[in-house]
Amino acid sequence: MVTYVAIGLLAILASIKAFHYYYQIKRAPSQKQLSKLVLSTLRRGQSDRE
């Protein structure tokens, strides 16, 4: 019984992780977007300081 539960949990874990990866990949920024994020954060930081 425990073994079948473990098999079930393995299947659930693999499915959740697979969906999680696919969902994350859709939201993943490009390297260019990351650069823009950093630059805009720093620009905001500067204007806050001023």
Binding site: K17, A18, Y21, Q24, I25, R27, A28, P29, S30, Q31, Q33, L34, L37, V38, T41, L42, R44, G45, Q46, D48, R49
Partner: peptide, 28 residues
Amino acid sequence: TLSKRFTPALRRIQLQKMFQQYSYELAS
């Protein structure tokens, strides 16, 4: 297989989280 394929994108997501979560530390 999935983690090997998606690792670069997962790293970029982590970077995005880092820059957003620690925006104050970035500017300061």
